[in-house]
Simulated scan of single mutants.
Amino acid sequence: MSTPRPPFRVGIIGTGGIAHAHAEALQSLAPRVEIAGVVDLDRARADAFADRFDVDRVYLDAAELFANERLDLVHICTPPQTHTPLAIQAMRAGVPSLVEKPTALSLGEMDELAAVQEQTGVPVLTVFQHRFGAAARHLAALAGAGELGRPLVATCETLWHRPDEYFDVPWRGRWDVEGGGPTMGHGIHQFDLLFSIFGRWSEVSAFAARQLRPTDTEDVSMALVRFENDALATVANSLVSPHETSRLRFDFAHASVEVRHLYGYTSEDWTFTPAPGLEHLAARWAEGLDSGVVSGHRDQLRAIFDALGAGESPGVGLADARHTLEFAAATYASAFRGATIHAGELAGDDPFVRSMSGGIVPWAPVKQVLA
């Protein structure tokens, strides 16, 4: 009889709002996993978090955590401008990291992460949990096997509402510390799921605007996308839409598949419409669904620990995350330059490699200085 594997030991850096979703997901996977320690510059907040989630050890910086704990994974749940330095620190300490979106503030930072990952052999993963819900995994399997026919058309909408007060948090709505607006921080989950189903995008033509919110960044963006397989899609990201919805529709040659939700879906949120004469596909679709389980961090964490336990590479790795982040950069570059942007075009010394704003935001009061 094989010896049971000891629990995976994880750390959490940052104990703000999103860290609670991580901790709740981790607790739901107990006793397979345990939270070994947490880090926050705010000791009172860290103590309250540790009390709530029954964590014994609290640290004031990541170096203390890495020096004192043996970790299988560290969760980086801090503001976006800290993601890259903390992930590099984790790699240097030999600890794989799971980073909240966006993984980095720019393509240049993503390439820096990739260089350190190559040196250390330690992976950096990104939280893109919508890929891992039962319905999305089932859709990916059916599409990958060719059962739905060729991908043709998609619609991807993240239409949310955030009041002015939402941006009172100092790091929100700023290019230098958040990286961008809803394209970077909100819609990215939806279009990442789109890419995981339809494949790699090849070109984008986009608009972006600041319609209402007191931000440096956009509060709306819209893009027309072509894929390498010649499928077409529209992608809309908004923070000024009172009727909030998250919607993805995939039209294949043999079926249309749509999901409507807000921050997480269940299998009941999906609809499947077979093409005339292919009604038997509806039964195939129904085979891979669960019931009432909301997609979230737990799905991705379970997949990560399954992969780590089997000695396999977990998702979502840097290559996939960079492809998604490159789309955000291309959206901004297309909008601000008024030109179609092709995959791979943003490279080298291009300003949009260094910063998502490219230093040419049209509504900026003065010419921006790149970070």
Rank of each mutant, 00 (worst) to 15 (best):
S205Y: 05
V204G: 02
V122D: 04
I188L: 15
A253D: 15
T78K: 00
A253Q: 13
S205W: 11
V293D: 06
Y166C: 02
K367A: 15
P214K: 12
V39N: 03
P102F: 11
A154R: 06
H83N: 13
Y265H: 12
F336Q: 03
R337K: 02
D192W: 00
G199D: 04
A62Q: 12
H297Y: 15
L301Y: 11
G187I: 02
G311M: 02
T82M: 02
D51M: 05
D164G: 09
R210S: 14
P351A: 07
A134W: 09
T245K: 13
Y265R: 04
Q89I: 08
W171D: 13
D51C: 05
V124Y: 00
I13Y: 08
A46P: 02
F327I: 01
R52T: 13
A90V: 03
L224G: 12
A347W: 11
V95G: 01
A330C: 03
A140Q: 13
G315I: 00
P31S: 06
A48Q: 14
A321Q: 01
L139N: 07
P4C: 04
Q119D: 12
W270V: 08
D176E: 14
A223S: 15
D192I: 01
L224N: 13
P151S: 07
A46T: 10
I188H: 04
D42F: 05
A255Y: 08
E279F: 09
L142D: 08
P365I: 07
D56N: 08
S355A: 15
A30H: 09
P163S: 07
R249N: 09
W285G: 07
V169M: 06
V240E: 00
E109G: 06
A154H: 01
V361T: 14
T340G: 13
N229R: 07
Q117I: 06
A233D: 11
G144M: 08
H161C: 07
A330R: 06
I188S: 07
L278Y: 09
F132M: 01
T15M: 03
P214Q: 11
V58W: 02
E112S: 14
D349N: 08
R249S: 15
E268P: 03
A209C: 05
